[in-house]
Design a protein around this nucleic acid. Sequence first.
DNA 1: CAGTTTTAAGACTCTTTTGTCTTAAATTAG
DNA 2: CTAATTTAAGACAAAAGAGTCTTAAAACTG
Lengths: 149, 149
Amino acid sequence: MILSKTCIYGILATLHLATKKDKEYLPISQIAKELDISFHFLTKILQKLTQQEIMSSYRGPNGGIALARPKEEIKLMDIVVAIDGSEIFEQCLLKLPGCGKLKPCPLHDEWGLIRKQIQEMLNQTSVASVAEKIVKNSLRLADVNPLEL
Amino acid sequence: MILSKTCIYGILATLHLATKKDKEYLPISQIAKELDISFHFLTKILQKLTQQEIMSSYRGPNGGIALARPKEEIKLMDIVVAIDGSEIFEQCLLKLPGCGKLKPCPLHDEWGLIRKQIQEMLNQTSVASVAEKIVKNSLRLADVNPLEL
DNA sequence: CAGTTTTAAGACTCTTTTGTCTTAAATTAG
DNA sequence: CTAATTTAAGACAAAAGAGTCTTAAAACTG
Ligand code: FES
Ligand code: FES
């Protein structure tokens, strides 16, 4: 819910990249393996992110994918908008057309408040800050075997 | 997003009913017409709500659907859980299995906060209070022609 | 240049969600 | 009892989302 699977995979890959050394191209095949995502599917998703210049890619040996901008400057919101679009933040909770003050649905105020918070959270959270947290607390980006904990 | 179309239609129908006189059966065909939802689809959805005893139904002439309990006692949450289940409120934003403190993902805290607010909003909002608001401010439950405003 | 590695592009398939349609069962009215 | 009205149940179809696979193009290696 909220985020499409495509978008989630995009976020996971971005975060994964951000925990690695900067400026180095990482092959998609390796990312896919480490995150347990289908290689071909991930390729298609990352294509979208390179087209939107969030990532940059390089073909051939030692090629792969890298973040196109400093990770401090990439917000989660950028990835979400690049993949799922910004409609999520404009849409009525009840999916009635034309959400807005002009013709609000009965839950418009309540939903507006929550929607705004989601928006702020994604806008404020940089890929760098999440990556730092991941490294510091060894958090997961994929399913983990409980025995590993 | 967040709510399935099925769930939204369930909410719309419930709210619509709540704006009408209590204890009277309203034919599904009429609700479907007023909310501009496919009659057969709505029938199927409302079946689920009657099975969960949120609504009660009666067949034959002058039959239809009515709220099974006082509308003050029905919360939006009841409808959501009846149709979409409670998994939404337990699920990881990144759809990783086993969301919880034991093996949190890097967005667990941020998402937990928002998820809790959605939960509280749905839990606190009774069908009666929304219905009252609809009547008082003549709010819409379906698409409306802007010219009508 | 030939062969290998890697992304790009797009056709194709599978699954889930959404929506339609048909038939059956209950209830009422005459 | 018969005909009309209404929900119940479930098969079926269409659309969207998720995922697979094949072929092409770019870049490097020797
Ligand atoms: S009109 Fe429904 S949330 Fe704005
Ligand atoms: S583990 Fe991701 S939100 Fe809880």
